[in-house]
């Protein structure tokens, strides 16, 4: 896959080290599912975790710990290797939806844009967005970091074009107007630290209702 926009090393390190909120873990896992370049970086950061396990101070386990664990093995069913799941949504996203695109329960948010909020811990939020072909997501800025991963179609912002597998990272200072390609509807996974603020798009009270 020809991916042009990747995650930065510090985000991949934070993912490997286990330091990210759930919603960001999800979008990193989804991008890495599509991007072997970033997967190799994550797995090499994992190997630093291995080195830390190798070097770490040991804490003695109790005398019967091994015997207890051996007894538990009798009750364990071995898991076969998992196989890749075909579909538009990468497996980690499918796990949150309970299926592929056809299982998504979309809610309209205006201008033909639809969203589906995924249930994650509340320090950050994750949603799928469906932007009709040729439609612009209204000019918005946000508090904190927003990451947007394209899963279908493509969008264009002021600087660049983003297609399947590409991830856009924007911080709070960026105000931008992504426009979906004219050819087909664009489906993205978007993760934010804080709620989006749309400029004059919907009254605040409606924003609360639809949890934009």
């Amino acid at each position: 896959m020809n991916i042009k926009h990747h995650l930065q090393d510090d985000t991949l390190l934070a993912y490997a080290a286990g330091n990210l909120p759930e919603a960001f873990n999800l979008i990193v896992a989804a991008h890495v599912s599509l991007c072997d370049e970033c997967r190799a970086v994550v797995e090499s950061y994992d190997s630093i975790g291995g080195a830390i396990i190798d070097n770490t101070e040991v804490a003695d386990v109790s005398a019967d710990s091994l015997a207890q664990t051996l007894a538990r093995l009798d009750t364990v069913t071995r898991e076969p290797r998992s196989t890749p799941r075909p579909g538009t949504l990468p497996a980690p996203v499918q796990n949150y939806i309970g299926g592929d695109l056809d299982a998504v329960r979309w809610r309209p948010v205006g201008m033909g844009v639809k969203q589906a909020i995924l249930s994650t811990s509340d320090t950050a939020s994750a949603r799928l967005l469906m932007i009709p072909a040729g439609v612009a997501i209204p000019d918005h800025s946000h508090e904190g970091t927003e990451m947007t991963l394209v899963l279908k179609g493509a969008f264009q912002d002021e600087d660049d074009r983003f297609a399947r597998g590409d991830i856009e990272v924007a911080d709070g200072s960026v105000s931008h107007t992504p426009v979906a390609d004219i050819g087909e509807d664009c489906i993205c996974l978007a993760v934010t630290e804080a709620p989006l603020k749309f400029k004059g798009f919907l009254p605040k009270v409606v924003q609360k209702l639809v949890r934009i």
Partner: peptide, 18 residues
Amino acid sequence: RIDMLRRQNRPEPEELPW
């Protein structure tokens, strides 16, 4: 650890084909 301390799943990348 994430499961234990935060009561969260950690989303994992899709497994590669073997």
